[in-house]
């Protein structure tokens, strides 16, 4: 990330030098379950054997809508897509969607992880977050 780019929150995602994006989660070997974002204990069992892991960068669309009016504390553009993507780990993740027209989305469609702009903050930084976009059709 360049100096003029700021992640909306630390610990949600990582962008590697090759440009690949990774969602940062946790895994508890004793419960066999993943979670996001990383927590100090497994949210399902309370055990503290949590390992930091990179979650899948793709999944399927499980829920979607569009936010049409700016909610409190949000300075970006509307409408924007909002939904849930189910990762291969069985984890359902709350996320922004790059597609803001609900009619162009459908249940179960393939989605991929990207970094998306939110707004420019008062210091001139471009604030970015993770988001999912419909996977490109293979040509």
């Amino acid at each position: 990330m360049t100096a003029s780019t700021r992640a909306v929150h630390d610990g949600l995602f990582r962008v590697d030098d090759d440009g690949s994006v990774h969602l940062l989660g946790g895994y508890s070997p004793s419960s066999g379950k993943h979670h996001f974002p990383l927590l100090p204990a497994c949210p399902y069992t309370g055990t503290e054997d949590v390992e930091a892991v990179d979650l899948s960068d793709h999944g399927t669309l499980w829920g979607w809508t569009a936010v049409t009016a700016a909610p409190p504390g949000y300075e970006g553009e509307v409408p924007f897509g909002f939904g849930v993507v189910e990762l291969p780990e069985g984890l359902r993740v709350i996320t922004r969607l790059t597609e803001s027209d609900p009619a162009r989305l459908e249940f179960g469609m393939a989605m991929g992880l990207v970094v998306a702009p939110l707004h420019t903050d008062s210091d001139g930084n471009e604030v970015v977050t993770y988001a999912f976009e419909p996977a490109k059709d293979p040509e």
Partner: peptide, 30 residues
């Protein structure tokens, strides 16, 4: 207006992930 809840962390508001009606909408869709 839309209920502002201190329940959500500020970053979640900044990311647009704190719009109460959008959660209602996903639940309705399901």
């Amino acid at each position: 207006g839309i209920i502002r809840s201190s329940f959500f962390e500020p970053w979640r508001e900044e990311a647009g992930l704190a719009a109460t009606p959008s959660y209602f909408a996903l639940r309705a869709q399901r």
